[in-house]
Amino acid sequence: MIVAAVALGALAFALAWPVPVALSRAEWPARSPATALVLWQGIALGGGLSMIGALLAFGASPAGSLAGAANALLPMAAAGPIPEGFGVVHLAALTLAVGLAVHLALNLATTAVRAERARRRQHRLIDLLASPASESTGARVLAHPVPAAYCVPGLRTATVITDGLVELLDEAELRAVVGHERAHLDQLHHLVLLAFRAWHAALPWFPIANRAERSVAMLTEMLADDAPRRRVGVEPLRTALLRVGSSGASAAYDDSPTASAASDERVLERRLARLEADLHPLDPRARSATWLLATAIVAVPVCVLAAIAA
């Protein structure tokens, strides 16, 4: 039991510190963003599981198994003496494990509810204000001079562009922009982002959560760039990015420009650099190995917990 706790603890530490730092600094994710995204998900899920698992394994160690600990402790939960062999540290570890699990789950739920509410409001206003989808692009158009494009994900989706954008860009560039937003919707990027945003909201003091969220957001943008790049070509996408970025009008609207603008700019720079460099994807063997690694990261804590369950 103690061995399992130490092993899970070591895994949790590795996934909470050196591994995500290395991954967020690595260059290869720009070449194969989908693979990197899978690895990030493995790290987040595996990290959470092994952290909670380590606490559980340590807390249950006096009873020899998780089921044994539950049998010994649950009848005494409301009142009664602490069973033989259990110390205060064990009980604290178990409480922490349960608390952490509940905290993460609740945060995921509230983040999802808040996002859903914001989306519903968006749909209501879009229905009221935007023109119906245009035939050439399939996007809805808002009468507003600031060039902007965005999408509302969810069960019901919408892609919205503004008059200002239609004026700024030519036909191919518009199709590239709409293709980018469509890719976000088709590939359900909001679900991946939601999980990482909830993780960040649950652990705001944890620098890696922030780093992970930014890296994942960057990867989803790169993935969304790849769809129009294949269909419309690199040039329209690149000039569209440059034109919308250099219009600079959106800066006037942001009420917290410092931190978010800096990170948005970095995302834009990396996307442009990536389009220019025309990177080759990772070779298939490296990609399979990464997928395997991501699976293993999640499977190991699950297997360890299963082994000590009974």
């Binding site: 509302v152 930014r214 250099s246 600079g248 959106s250 800066a251 990170s263």
Partner: peptide, 21 residues
């Protein structure tokens, strides 16, 4: 839409985020 900074809500996805002058 435009002031929804990248780390606030997962509700929307913008083509280009905020860019300084």
């Amino acid at each position: 839409v435009l002031s929804a900074s990248s780390d606030r809500d997962a509700a929307l996805a913008r083509f280009v985020g905020t860019v300084s002058a």
